[in-house]
């Protein structure tokens, strides 16, 4: 008989609801519980998360259907499913954690009636970002929470929250964590925060100039860690050369201390660091309102700088680089005490 009345295929909404119920169950989880039942529920939960993923991404047989995705997304954010999921991730097995991460990532981009409702949800639940950021301190969770975080800061409003939160300072340590995979993930998030939303970044850098660049210089550009210096000088170039940050750039290249740090980076034995350092160094030289102390550094070191630049070759032919170099040399050569 049963075969005749096969259960109706579950709709995306059913799956979200069931996932939520299971998450609620595990969220309340206490020690004294039937472990066998728990195991069964966990299998069920993992299966549901995988189904959500397959609706959102499609699978080998079918491409995702936008209507199903929209239904799923709407139901997901109707209640606190995201919070439950984030809280329960440590309880899941590795495969389910990866599935959950991909589900959360995808939901950030799902439009519901051409609106990103994920953004609205997060706006009311910003404290979730605190959970995700601190995740970098947990070796087990860092890569999962990190990937979710990077997706969430695609929303400008979320990025603004994170930039202005006290957590921002923690990134200076996270990107130097000894585990390379975690440090590199934190660095990717840090870069995203400081480059993605132009106006927000410009506002942040102007308002936080003092502490931010003090930390940036001492903790990152002067770090003893090669990879930190390399990433930091590259990102610095990206930030300063962005037109929206021109005010910050002007301020940065007027500081004698900053020039000193960049000149040291220019002398590094690593070619990659040298090249990135040059792209920042040239801004000091191109600045047409050089403060007197900057000019005096250039003048005092004129012959050394010119020799260094003259011998500075990059492996690949690069007209732009050569042109920049010629201009910088000309600029410095023309300086008089």
């Amino acid at each position: 008989m049963k075969g005749l009345f096969k259960a109706k295929p579950r709709t995306p909404i059913d799956i979200v609801r069931q996932t939520r119920d299971l998450l609620v169950y595990f969220d309340r989880s206490t020690e004294s519980r039937d472990s066998k039942r728990e195991e069964k529920q966990m299998t069920e939960l993992c299966k549901n998360i995988r189904e959500l993923k397959s609706i959102l991404y499609g699978n080998s047989e079918s491409e995702p259907v936008s209507e199903a995705c929209a239904q799923l997304t709407q139901e997901f954010f109707k209640e606190n499913t995201l919070r439950l999921l984030i809280k329960c991730i440590p309880k899941l097995n590795l495969e389910a954690r990866k599935d959950a991460t991909q589900v959360v990532a995808n939901l950030q981009r799902q439009p519901v009636q051409s609106k990103l409702i994920a953004s609205d949800y997060l706006e009311k639940n910003m404290d979730l970002m605190d959970v995700l950021i601190v995740g970098y301190e947990n070796t087990e969770m860092a890569l999962h929470y990190g990937a979710m975080l990077r997706e969430c800061i695609r929303h400008q409003i979320v990025a603004r929250y994170v930039l202005n939160s006290p957590h921002m300072k923690k990134f200076f340590d996270y990107i130097q964590l000894p585990n390379f995979d975690i440090a590199a993930d934190a660095a990717a998030t840090f870069k995203e925060l400081l480059t993605r939303h132009k106006s927000t970044v410009a506002e942040f850098l102007s308002n936080n100039y003092e502490w931010f660049f003090a930390d940036y210089n001492s903790k990152l550009l002067e770090s003893s860690n090669y990879i930190t210096r390399r990433l930091a000088v590259k990102l610095l170039g990206d930030m300063l050369l962005d037109r929206s940050n021109s005010a910050v750039m002007t301020r940065y290249v007027s500081s004698r201390e900053n020039l000193r740090i960049l000149m040291n980076l220019l002398r590094e034995s690593s070619k990659s660091i040298q090249i990135e350092a040059f792209h920042v160094f040239k801004l000091f030289a191109a600045n047409q309102h050089k403060p007197a102390d900057i000019i005096s550094i250039f003048v005092a070191n004129k012959s050394k700088i010119l020799r260094l630049l003259d011998e500075f070759k990059i492996d690949k032919e690069d007209e732009q680089f050569e042109a920049d170099k010629a201009q910088v040399m000309e600029e410095i050569a023309a300086l008089e005490p």
Binding site: F180, D181, A184, D185, A187, A188, R230
Partner: peptide, 11 residues
């Protein structure tokens, strides 16, 4: 130049 590939492999 960009270390994204290395990061991805590690991940």
């Amino acid at each position: 130049p960009d270390l994204d590939d290395v990061r991805r492999e590690a991940k």
